[in-house]
Design a protein around this nucleic acid. Structure first.
Length: 710
DNA sequence: AGGTCGGATCTTTTT
DNA sequence: GATCCGACCT
């Protein structure tokens, strides 16, 4: 009996055994999507359709890649044996390392994270003598990343006689030149280079096409234009392409993901098999009915309806809180009851739309002395002190690494001031040199004051000398040496409060991370230092440990995708917050918010609680939001409303609507013209409406404004 | 060179 | 309300 088909339902078996070269699996939440992918691989191997070396499996997150790797090995009961399993970025990185010459990269190239990228852009913008108010690094970063995700280089862009666009393109070009000079590659660049590598090197493409005849992609709905082109290039017309995804869980369009890739796949591969996995093994019937009803309000879906053989389960609880603090208290009470009934804390998750909402929850949890863990937020390798120490290592590894140079030139402070650094920057820009080279030249040319030259010289010597001492050391001793020579520990010791001590602890943690570091199969060919630096950039690492402790789980709805919990509480289900005010006026963004809600609802196995507050403190002032429109999209028989104070019920909101006003509705005003309703506040004669008119956003009292519905 | 103060900003953030 | 940034002061 084949292991590949063990414990699969008929739809899953159909997907796993499909004879079609290209298959698109529409896998609903909780329908066993990763399972199907893993079993598909086992099937191909068992049937002799592929050798391990012929398989490439791609996902988005390191976590998902690690899980996939583990599950494949467990199912096959042996190591991967030459299979490539990784994230898009990890695989792209592996290709670029293997073919750095063809990719026109330096052998020493390093990866910069979003933070370094932004700093670099700030420098570029300054160097171009542009007004930093008008040309913000953040916006330029967004622009450049978006263009790279579309596969566009500066010379492929047209300014359309728009001076703003012209400048943006100019910034893009200058930034790219700066990266090349410093041998640096940002996240988008990894993908774009890897794509161009294949596109422009036919021999290489042929090699990989012959090798990877089986390409499998998880979370296909999250691919961007470039990732799709890259896959398409590899697969060509005839290779096996197994894509698993769920259009209803597409929640990353704001960072370039294109659900349209699912339709594109269907057009590009007319012979494909389309398989739906609709049987859900996770949630109760009640939860699935709610999820189905909610998502049916979206248009342009590929269509899918989840069902289960399981139990109906409890009604969904909807708590109308007096305010955000009351909401948090309710959540804590609720979790306490579940815990008393025997659920572990870790089986309960609190999900929210924005990270800012975690604070009130944390306060309540701490007060109740309930253990909790906040997911997301600061990652280990993103901490300033860790990046400082790594910057030393990076600069010793590659003197052209400008962001590393900038980061540590005066950290810890060593008497090299802004004037000197500016001088170096200018020289670097004018002479097209790296900062390091510019510094060397300035000293040689005696163009600096004696004091500055002395300080700078000793900094350069410090790096050179330490770099020499590192030769032949083990990775953790290297970091130990670097940390010692840099004087970082002394530097942080001076910082007041416990913060400095935390930082020193983290440096020690970095050394032990280096000691325990084992490259995965995507980086094992590299020198250990390079592998470690790449690892630090590509895998920022979770924040604080405690992963195995029994804690209540707190995270944003985005971060919850792919996870499941016995008990889920979705809080702040209010207009303006969820859906977020920034998404309300755009129908596409609104649908994405609804998908986000769908993702949240389908995380729950047994029990789902949603809540909204009558008033909420946000950005330091009080808001009086309406319950979210999403709440009205759930069939009322599935919901049990819980009300303590005088909070408005969803029923009351339905009455307000009966007055003819609805959120998102087009209305006509005698003097302001046509607009869209953004907010509703209060009830009956006191109803106030916020409307987005062409002339700006206005608050009106509904009773007087005589708005006409359109 | 480093500290302090005022002002602007405040969605989500796989890599 | 918190944080991040830049300008200004010491």
């Amino acid at each position: 009996m084949t292991r590949a088909l063990e414990r699969l339902n008929t739809d899953q078996q159909q997907a796993v055994t499909t004879a079609a070269a290209q298959a698109l699996v529409l896998a609903g939440a909780g329908s066993g999507k990763t399972r199907v992918l893993v079993h598909r691989i086992a099937w191909c191997l068992e049937q002799g359709l592929a050798a391990p070396t012929g398989i490439l499996a791609v996902t988005f997150t390191n976590k998902a890649a690690a899980e996939m790797r583990g599950r494949i090995e467990a199912l096959l009961n042996r190591p991967l044996g030459g299979m490539w399993v990784g994230t898009f970025h990890g695989i792209a990185h592996r290709l670029l390392r293997a073919h750095w010459r063809e990719a026109r990269l330096s052998e020493q190239f390093q990866i910069i994270d979003a933070d370094d990228q932004q700093k670099m852009l700030r420098r570029v913008i300054r160097g171009l003598d542009l007004d930093e108010e008008q040309w913000q690094a953040k916006e330029a970063q967004w622009f450049i990343s978006a263009r790279k995700d579309e596969g566009l280089r500066p010379d492929k862009l047209h300014d359309g006689d728009d001076p703003g666009m012209k400048t943006m393109i100019h910034i893009y070009r200058s930034y790219q030149e700066a990266c090349e000079r410093a041998s640096l590659v940002d996240f988008g660049e990894l993908l774009l280079r890897a794509y161009e590598l294949w596109r422009d090197t036919p021999g290489l493409l042929r090699h990989y096409r012959e090798r990877f005849f089986h390409v499998l992609v998880d979370e296909f709905q999250d691919t961007n234009a470039l990732q799709y082109s890259w896959l398409r290039l590899l697969v060509g017309e005839s290779a096996n392409f197994f894509a698993v995804g769920d259009d209803d869980q597409s929640i990353y369009s704001w960072r370039g993901a294109q659900v349209e890739n699912m339709q594109r796949f269907r057009r590009d591969y007319p012979q494909h098999a389309l398989i739906r996995l609709e049987q859900n093994y996770r949630s109760t019937g009640t939860i699935l009915d709610a999820a189905n009803a909610l998502i049916s309000n979206n248009t342009a879906r590929l269509g899918k309806k989840l069902w289960t053989n399981g139990q109906r389960g409890e009604a969904i609880k909807l708590y109308a809180a007096y305010n955000d603090i009351d909401e948090a208290r309710y959540c804590v009470d609720r979790i306490r009851l579940w815990h008393d009934d025997g659920d572990r804390f870790a089986e309960s998750a609190i999900l929210y739309r924005t990270s800012a909402q975690s604070r009130v929850m944390e306060d309540a949890l701490r007060q109740a002395e309930m253990p909790y863990r906040v997911h997301g937020g600061f990652k280990f390798y993103e901490r300033a002190e860790v990046k400082d120490a790594l910057a030393y290592l990076r600069l010793m590894h590659n003197r052209q690494d400008d962001p590393a140079f900038e980061r540590i030139i005066n950290t810890p402070t060593r008497g090299i001031g802004n004037r000197t650094v500016d001088e170096i920057r200018n020289t670097a820009r004018l002479e097209r040199l790296s900062l390091w080279e510019a510094a060397v030249r300035l000293i040689a040319a005696r163009e600096l004051g004696a004091r500055a030259a002395g300080m700078l010289g000793s900094f350069l010597r410090l790096i050179d000398l330490a770099a020499e001492q590192l030769q032949g050391l083990a990775l953790d001793s290297m970091l130990d040496t670097v940390i010692e020579h840099s004087g970082l520990v002394e530097h942080y010791r001076k910082e007041k409060g416990d913060r400095g001590l935390d930082r020193i602890d983290n440096l020690a943690e970095l050394v032990s991370a280096a000691r325990d570091f084992v490259p995965d199969e995507n980086t094992e060919e590299l020198p250990l230092v390079a592998a470690f630096l790449s690892h630090a950039a590509l895998e920022a690492g979770e924040g604080q440990g405690s992963e195995f402790d029994d804690c209540v789980q707190l995270m944003t709805l985005h971060a919850a995708k792919g996870l499941e919990f016995t008990n889920v509480l979705i809080v702040g289900v209010e207009e303006g917050l969820f859906p977020h005010s920034r998404s309300i006026s755009d129908p596409n963004q609104l649908e994405e918010e609804r998908r986000l809600c769908y993702v949240g609802v389908t995380r729950a196995r047994q029990r789902l609680v949603m809540s909204f507050a009558e008033s909420r403190r946000l950005h330091g002032s009080d808001y009086y939001p309406q319950p979210s429109r999403f709440l009205r999209e759930f069939p009322s028989e599935l919901i049990e409303e819980i009300r303590v104070g005088g909070a408005p019920t969803v029923q009351a909101v339905r009455e307000t609507e009966a007055n003819g006003l609805r959120l998102g509705q087009r209305v006509l005003h005698r003097t302001f013209g046509e607009g869209i309703v953004l907010h509703l506040e209060g009830r009956g004669a006191h109803t106030r409406v916020q409307v987005n008119f062409p002339g700006g956003v206005k608050w009106l009292v509904a009773a007087y404004a005589a708005l006409e519905a359109m």
